[in-house]
């Protein structure tokens, strides 16, 4: 028998009448709060039969007491939680995930917007980028400052924008000296083409097996011949 829980302060509504198994399962699911619980774990913890669990879950769902959520770590595992909870970051993947997968469209659009605003402002601090995007009202949903920070940092990693310390003069006149600001690298730098990565050996998966007179050797290398258009 599980300890009786105090009713959730928010859920003032009275519970509909529940059978014994329904009550046990509901208490268990609710006790897991925003982490939810996997059906197999329910069976283990309650000792109920699979068919009973499935049936009970269905009836609880029909009474609108629990919901199923997608776990980004394992989509095949069905996880249930009480309706009043929002899935935790570990389950949902955080603000960038929708329905258990990365919301790539949203990320792409937000990146484009960030780049557009950085280019328009030429040199901008994080706050300025956020403000500028908020004012433009492109998004129906509010995006948070944290989201903008994460996006811009990823763009710095991609060498689409660069992180600089403002000198307060020239291009930086709009930004207070010493502050961290961002500038677009479009057409200026971006990822460098390395001298090693531009020859076949740089990307060759078989370089460790390649020897001057071996089966794989520079003399007979097909990558080289393709690269130099030397096909006979």
């Amino acid at each position: 028998m599980l300890p009786q829980k105090r009713p959730h302060p928010d859920s003032k509504t009275k519970l509909p009448p529940l059978s014994e198994t329904e009550r046990v399962l509901y208490e268990l699911i609710k006790s897991k709060q925003n982490l939810g619980i996997w059906t197999a774990d329910m069976k283990r913890e309650t000792g109920l039969q699979t068919t009973v669990v499935t049936k009970t879950l269905k009836s609880l769902q029909n009474k609108n007491l629990i919901k199923d959520v997608v776990n980004i770590h394992n989509k095949a595992r069905k996880i249930y939680m009480a309706v009043e909870f929002e899935p935790s970051k570990e389950i949902s993947g955080g603000s960038w995930y929708s329905d258990g997968s990365l919301d790539t469209d949203f990320i792409r659009i937000l990146r484009e917007q960030c780049l557009k605003h950085i280019e328009r402002l030429q040199v901008a601090t994080m706050e300025a980028i956020y403000k500028s995007i908020q004012e433009s009202r492109v998004f129906k949903v509010e995006c948070t400052m944290q989201q903008i920070v994460e996006i811009v940092n990823a763009m710095v990693l991609d060498k689409e924008v660069e992180e600089l310390k403002s000198t307060g003069i020239g291009d930086f006149s709009k930004v207070q000296s010493g502050k961290i600001c961002y500038r677009s690298l479009k057409g200026r730098e971006g990822p460098k083409v390395g001298s090693f990565s531009s020859i076949p050996c740089g990307v060759c998966p078989r370089i460790s097996e390649c020897t001057p007179d071996g089966i794989i050797s520079p003399k007979t290398c097909i990558y080289y011949n393709k690269w130099l258009k030397l096909e006979f």
Partner: peptide, 25 residues
């Protein structure tokens, strides 16, 4: 770093490049 990062980019793709730059930075 530029040289090795370029290698990662051509060999493993853009995502790997981002991850590698994060770790090396």
């Amino acid at each position: 770093n530029d040289e090795v990062e370029a290698l990662v980019l051509t060999r493993f793709g853009k995502e790997a490049y981002r991850i590698f730059r994060l770790l090396i930075k």
